[in-house]
Amino acid sequence: QNEKLANELKSLLDELNVNELATGSLNTYYKRTIKISGQKAMYALKSKDFKKMSEAKYQLQKIYNEIDEA
Rank of each mutant, 00 (worst) to 15 (best):
M42I: 12
A22L: 14
A70G: 04
S37P: 01
E55Q: 11
N19T: 06
K48F: 09
T28V: 13
R32T: 11
I63F: 02
N65D: 10
N17K: 14
L9V: 03
K10R: 12
Q61W: 05
R32A: 09
Q1F: 10
Q61D: 04
A6W: 15
A6H: 06
I36E: 07
M53A: 01
A44C: 04
L5Y: 02
K4Y: 05
T33G: 07
L60R: 00
D68K: 15
K35I: 09
Q59I: 10
T23E: 04
K31H: 06
M42V: 10
L12A: 02
G24I: 14
G24C: 14
E69T: 12
K52D: 05
T28K: 12
Q1W: 11
K48H: 07
S47N: 05
K40P: 00
T33F: 09
K51T: 10
Y58P: 01
Q61A: 07
L12W: 03
M53Q: 01
Y29S: 04
L16T: 02
I36N: 05
L60M: 03
L13H: 01
V18N: 11
E8V: 04
Q1M: 10
L60H: 00
D49G: 02
A6P: 03
N7C: 14
Y43Q: 15
S25R: 11
L60Q: 01
K57S: 04
Q1C: 13
E3F: 08
K35R: 11
E66F: 07
N17M: 14
F50D: 04
V18T: 10
L13S: 00
Y43K: 12
S37A: 15
I34T: 02
K48N: 13
K57Y: 14
R32P: 01
N27T: 11
D68M: 15
F50Y: 12
Q1P: 12
A41Q: 00
I36V: 10
D49H: 03
L26R: 03
I67R: 02
N65E: 09
T28A: 13
K51S: 08
T28D: 14
A70R: 06
Q59E: 12
N2C: 14
D49W: 02
E15F: 12
K4F: 06
E8H: 03
Q39H: 07
K57V: 13
L26I: 04
D49C: 06
K31M: 07
I34C: 05
K4W: 08
Q1A: 13
E66D: 05
I67T: 02
K10F: 04
K31E: 05
K4D: 09
L45S: 01
E66A: 09
L5F: 02
L45Q: 03
M53V: 01
E20D: 07
D49T: 02
E15T: 08
L9K: 00
L9G: 01
E15Y: 14
E15G: 06
K48S: 04
Y29L: 04
Q39Y: 10
L21P: 04
L12M: 09
L9H: 00
E55H: 08
N65Y: 07
K31R: 11
Y64I: 14
M42S: 05
E66W: 10
N7S: 11
L9S: 01
T28Y: 13
A70H: 05
E20T: 14
N17H: 14
E8N: 02
A6S: 05
A56Q: 00
Q59N: 09
N19I: 15
A6R: 07
A6K: 06
I63Q: 01
K4V: 09
K51F: 08
Y29I: 04
M42Q: 09
K51W: 09
G38R: 14
N65Q: 12
L13T: 01
S11R: 13
A44F: 02
A6C: 10
K31C: 09
I36R: 08
T28Q: 12
L21E: 08
L45R: 00
L13V: 03
T33S: 12
A22E: 05
A22S: 04
A44M: 01
D68N: 14
Y30G: 01
S25G: 10
K10Q: 10
A6N: 02
Q39T: 09
N19G: 04
Y30M: 05
I34E: 02
A41N: 00
E8A: 06
A56F: 02
K57I: 15
K51G: 08
G38N: 03
K48R: 14
L60C: 03
L9W: 02
